[in-house]
């Protein structure tokens, strides 16, 4: 089920700085909330995010509970060649979710 949303321009010129946005459906449970039974709801967050461009990591981020639910990040990279951008989100349990997008560079 698609639970990620990435925006990458479909085309770009070589050397152009492109804007990228990435979002994933995730509650980012802080570990600081109490359930109605008075028990703390266990922490469960996306801890790490990374973007690879043709296999090379071009951006990454480390998240803490203060990141919003359904975490969103916008960043940029230089378009170098036609290829694939892959996005990886890793949660507290080590579970990885991925998304990808193609870019044609002229």
């Amino acid at each position: 089920m698609s639970r990620t949303l990435v925006s990458v321009p479909k085309t770009a010129r070589a050397g152009e700085v492109i804007d990228i946005r990435a979002m994933i459906a995730h509650p980012m449970e802080t570990g600081y909330r109490m359930g109605p039974n008075g028990q703390a709801i266990p922490r469960k967050i996306i801890r790490h995010f990374a973007c690879d461009y043709d296999g090379e990591e071009v951006f990454s981020a480390e998240f803490h509970p203060a990141m919003s639910a359904n975490p969103f990040v916008a960043f940029s990279t230089v378009a170098t060649k036609t290829g694939t951008l892959t996005f990886r989100w890793t949660d507290d349990d080590g579970k990885v979710e991925t998304a990808s997008a193609e870019i044609a560079v002229s």
């Binding site: 090379e56 919003s68 990040v73 960043f75 940029s76």
Partner: peptide, 12 residues
């Protein structure tokens, strides 16, 4: 390789 030093996000 970022080309531009700018990030945006949403926080609590």
């Amino acid at each position: 390789r970022a080309g531009r030093a700018r990030i945006a996000t949403r926080i609590r």
